[in-house]
Computed example of a mutant assay.
Amino acid sequence: MAAVSVQLLPADDVMAPSTTTPFALPSQHIVDHVVAVETVAAPAPRKRNVFDMFRLDGRVAVITGGARGLGYAMAEGLCAAGLSAIAILDLQTDLGESACEQLHSEYGVTARFYRLDVRDEEAVQDAMDAVVRDLGKIDILLLSAGVADLVLAEEYSPAKFRRVIDINLNGSFICAQAAGKHMIAAGRGGSIIFIGSMSGSIVNRPQSQSAYNASKAGVIHLMKSLSAEWAQYGIRCNSISPGYMDTPLNTAFEQEYFPEWKARTPMGRLGQPEELAGCALWLASNASSFCTGSDIIIDGGYTVI
């Protein structure tokens, strides 16, 4: 609404009352106060800066499998947006402690490492309890721990198959459940980000990886199930499904598979780990506050053809 400025101007040549006519002034000398009305535009309201919605100031994130590779790249993305603290949960102690030192050095964030096997229910619950005790709360959980085997189905031992399912799928549930309990009890909501794969939607060629494909399809549907159950608590669940990424774990297949992987990808290359960080930040932040139950495929176009 425009502001109105009112200014009283002095009367012009107003005579004092006559002694003979105490209650009347000569009509030719009556001059009323003049009111000048000036319309002044109100200051424009400050426009909301969309980048503010991506800030994570004051929040605490937990990342499983965050010691290296995709998990570490996404951890960097979250720390760059102002996290107050981050917990790295991983089996590899040396890499995990080094990752925390690096994150603290580069971003000034409080970083703690907790050694963890995501298949161990008791250890997972203890780790989540420790994070809340040490860092105060859990606002964000990013589930990046996972393994893959390239084994012909007819040669896959049941024990080896179960290991992939146990780490990728069951481990995701165990960690989500433990962190989810804390989020529900705190009553502040939260964001849980699962790492699926394009392999949860398609069957990769030329390699054989039936256990991995099945596990990631399960992770994506688990995410959707929890998103429906936990929306009432303000907990959003989404997943990121990468395509072929240029990570240390994949370099072992560089000579054998990289050429065909690139040829089957419309963008003609593998993805870089940091290319997932923006999506992870969006899902962790208020910028995605109405997004839950979504699987976001980042694969250079692999699944569209």
Rank of each mutant, 00 (worst) to 15 (best):
Ala214Met: 08
Ser210Tyr: 01
Ile240Glu: 11
Ala214His: 00
Trp230Asp: 05
Arg236Glu: 09
Ile235His: 01
Phe258Asp: 07
Ser225Gly: 14
Met245Asp: 08
Glu254Thr: 10
Ser225Lys: 05
Gly218Thr: 11
Asn250Ala: 15
Tyr244Gly: 13
Ser199Ala: 15
Trp261His: 06
Pro266Gly: 13
Tyr212Asp: 01
Pro266Ser: 15
Ala231Asp: 04
Met223Phe: 02
Thr247Asp: 05
Tyr233Asp: 12
Gly218Val: 02
Arg205Phe: 14
Asp246Lys: 05
Gln255Thr: 14
Ile220Val: 13
Gly200Cys: 08
Gln255Leu: 12
Ser239Val: 04
Met267Ser: 06
Val219Phe: 04
Ser215Lys: 04
Asn204Asp: 13
Val219Gln: 01
Pro259Val: 10
Lys216Thr: 07
Met198Trp: 01
Asn213Gln: 13
Gly218Pro: 03
Ala211Lys: 03
Ile240Met: 12
Cys237Leu: 15
Pro242Phe: 12
Gly243Trp: 06
Ser227Cys: 07
Val219Asn: 05
Ser227Met: 00
Glu229Arg: 06
Gln209Trp: 07
Lys216Glu: 04
Gly234Trp: 03
Lys224Cys: 00
Ile202Ala: 00
Ala252Gly: 14
Gly218Ser: 04
Ala228Ser: 11
Tyr212Cys: 06
Ile235Phe: 01
Met245Cys: 09
Gln209His: 12
Ile220Met: 11
Ser210Lys: 02
Ala211Thr: 07
Cys237Asp: 01
Arg269Thr: 11
Gln209Gly: 01
Tyr257Cys: 05
Phe253Asn: 13
Glu256Ile: 03
Pro242Val: 11
Thr265His: 10
Pro259Asn: 07
Gly268Phe: 07
Ser199Trp: 08
Ile202Arg: 10
Arg264Trp: 04
Lys262Val: 10
His221Glu: 11
Ser225His: 12
Gly200Ile: 10
His221Val: 10
Gln207Ser: 01
Thr247Pro: 05
Asn213Ser: 15
Met245His: 00
Arg269His: 08
Asn238Ala: 11
Thr251Gly: 00
Thr247His: 06
Ser227Ala: 15
Phe253Tyr: 15
Gln207Trp: 06
Arg205Lys: 14
Lys216Arg: 12
Pro248Val: 10
Met223His: 02
Lys262Asn: 09
Trp261Gly: 05
Lys262Ser: 03
His221Pro: 02
Gly268Thr: 12
Val219Ala: 06
Ser227Val: 06
Thr247Cys: 05
Trp261Met: 09
Gly234Met: 10
Leu270Thr: 06
Ala228Leu: 14
Arg205Asp: 09
Ala214Arg: 02
Tyr233His: 15
Ala263Tyr: 09
Ala263Gly: 03
Ala228Lys: 12
Tyr212Val: 06
Gly268Cys: 11
Lys262Pro: 02
Asn204Tyr: 00
Met267Gly: 01
Ser201Lys: 13
Ser225Trp: 00
Leu249Met: 15
Met245Thr: 14
Ser201Arg: 11
Val203Leu: 09
Ala217Asp: 07
Ala228Arg: 12
Gly268Glu: 05
Met223Lys: 00
Arg236Ser: 05
Leu222Pro: 07
Ser201Cys: 06
Ser215Phe: 02
Ser225Gln: 13
Glu256Gly: 04
Tyr212His: 10
Leu249Ile: 14
Asn213Asp: 09
Pro206Leu: 12
Ala263His: 14
